[in-house]
Simulated scan of single mutants.
Amino acid sequence: MENTTYIALSRIDVLTRALDVSANNLANVNTDGFKASKELFSDYLVHQKGANTLPGDKDQAFTEDKSTYRDHLQGPMHTTGNLTDFAINGEGYFAVRTTQGIRLTRNGQFHRRMDGTIVDGTGNPILDNNGRNLVLQQESDLLSAASDGTLSTQTGPIGIIGLLTVDNPNTLVAEGAFLLRPTTQTHQVARPEIRQGMLEASNVNAVSETTRMVEIQRAYDLTFQLIQTESTRHLNAIDKITAEASS
């Protein structure tokens, strides 16, 4: 196999990864609080050794899939009117208690459990700024939220929604569509800003993501055609050499 094919295969590997990432973004275009993923690729040169190396062919460029990262740009807000829906304007994440520990999320679609605990869609309790569960004592409680996250009912305040953040959001590890596992120290947001009755939509741009998928697919097809052309050329060369040797 010649170097042309090796280089093309490295490109195929990268394009396959890019297609998977883009497809996952599109699948979550309607997931509240979802943050789009981006790929981080790089080209690197390999120095060719040997006395028969032609001028200009000393280095060959390969493509490497380095990693993926999340675009933490805030998504648009939309009104729901539900008293237990909250959107974060600015930095920070809601903290929820899961069976695996504390997780962060931008998805503020919560509801009241039978025992009064405010939980997310999978039943994880949302935490206050002291790490405790937020609980509505009575089913008839009329919940209101101040912009700083202070929750109150007609009987008075019940707690403050805890908003946590980390120094580098790219250290957060995704778990599912909207939960993030912190791998570094978290701390409270200094100036939290919360909107009640609203949710933050996904920051995926469906039109640009679809266009990008088409571009990736075209690049994949062209690269694959190159591999097939090289394979055909090799086979023809082998057939010709075999024919000449036997004549």
Rank of each mutant, 00 (worst) to 15 (best):
D85K: 12
M213C: 01
T153Q: 15
T153S: 13
T79V: 11
N52G: 11
K240R: 08
K35Y: 00
Y44M: 09
S231D: 15
F94A: 00
N236F: 01
I160C: 04
A190Y: 01
T171A: 13
Q60K: 11
M1T: 10
S208W: 00
L40C: 01
L73C: 03
D43H: 05
L40W: 02
A8C: 07
L222A: 04
V21Q: 00
Y44D: 15
V29H: 15
L73A: 14
L180E: 09
K240Y: 04
K49W: 13
L179K: 03
A95K: 05
Q74N: 12
N203Q: 03
T79M: 14
H47M: 12
V14W: 04
L199A: 10
Q48A: 11
M198F: 10
Q48C: 10
M1L: 09
A18T: 01
Q188K: 08
F41C: 02
R97C: 04
T63Q: 10
T242I: 13
A51V: 03
H78F: 11
T153A: 12
R11N: 11
G90V: 02
M77W: 01
P125M: 09
G108C: 04
Y220L: 09
N236D: 10
F41R: 08
H187I: 11
A206E: 02
L199I: 06
V29F: 15
T150K: 04
G149I: 09
N203I: 02
E209A: 15
T79Q: 15
L172N: 11
A27H: 04
Q196A: 06
R97W: 14
H111S: 07
G121Y: 01
S208M: 03
N28E: 05
A51N: 14
R97E: 13
D128S: 13
L180K: 05
V204P: 07
A243H: 12
T165C: 05
T171M: 06
N170I: 07
F224A: 12
D20H: 09
T150I: 07
D71L: 06
G121E: 14
S144E: 14
K35D: 08
V119C: 10
T4N: 07
T229K: 01
K58M: 15
D65R: 13
T53G: 07
E193R: 08
T105K: 12
H47E: 08
I194M: 05
Q137H: 05
T171W: 03
P157W: 12
D141L: 09
H47R: 15
D120N: 09
T117K: 07
V29W: 07
T242E: 09
A177M: 05
Q74M: 10
V214N: 01
G162R: 04
G33W: 00
A145W: 03
I102S: 08
A237F: 01
D115N: 10
T184S: 09
D32G: 02
D57G: 04
G56N: 11
E91I: 00
T223E: 11
K49T: 11
T153E: 13
E64Q: 13
T232S: 04
T98G: 03
T4W: 00
T98C: 04
A206H: 00
A27K: 06
T4I: 06
D239M: 02
M1S: 10
S247L: 08
R132V: 06
E175A: 14
